[in-house]
């Protein structure tokens, strides 16, 4: 990323529509999964307390209609014990495009973060990626199996889709 691209990219950070635009921008300038993770870590470092952080996540959840209603069916459902997550993947121009949704707003905001990081990349990059941003922005508790919110299963499922596509390619 050059300075101008970085500037343009950062301009959209911390806005309620940031992630959707980021994915458009990232598509244009081909940022890597790790670059997106690093940007998110920087974005989140500006939040002074948990409330600001969660308000941002809730806003992400509220603003983003992430999945086409036709995919909000049981076959796309990843069952957490408490909140539901729907995930849809398609292969377009050598990249995997994820869309997802949840019935709980905080989960939905976190789903939006995951999609912004993993969507729009080549299957192999997704398979090989290591998601470290969740830990670093202090949201690791949401990926704990005891939370039973479907997020952990979603990440696994995203990688499985990518692996299947990778093998196919």
């Amino acid at each position: 990323m050059n300075e101008q691209q970085r500037c343009c990219y950062k301009f959209f950070s911390r806005k309620s529509i940031a992630l959707r635009l980021k994915s458009v921008v990232s598509n244009l300038i081909k940022v890597s999964i790790n670059e997106i993770q690093n940007e998110l870590i920087e974005d989140f470092s500006f939040f002074e307390d948990w409330m600001a952080k969660y308000e941002y996540i809730i806003q992400l959840g509220k603003d983003l209609p992430l999945i086409d209603e036709q995919y909000k069916r049981d076959e796309y459902l990843i069952k957490g014990c408490q909140s539901k997550v729907w995930l849809h993947a398609e292969h377009r121009d050598g990249k995997v495009i994820f869309t997802a949704d949840s019935d709980a707003i905080i989960t939905k905001g976190l789903v939006a973060l995951m999609v912004s990081v993993l969507s729009n990349h080549a299957p192999q990059e997704i398979v090989e990626s290591e998601l470290y941003f969740i830990d670093q922005i202090g949201l690791q508790e949401h990926l704990s199996p005891t939370r039973a919110n479907g997020l952990l299963s979603m990440v696994k499922q995203m990688k499985l889709y990518a692996a299947a596509l990778n093998a196919h390619v």
Partner: peptide, 22 residues
């Protein structure tokens, strides 16, 4: 208008332990 899971997450941040779910 709010999922119980979301309420539980915020209460937890406030140090309040409740149970959410079925």
């Amino acid at each position: 208008g709010a999922h119980p899971y979301d309420v539980g997450v915020i209460l937890d941040k406030l140090g309040i332990a409740v149970r959410t779910g079925h």
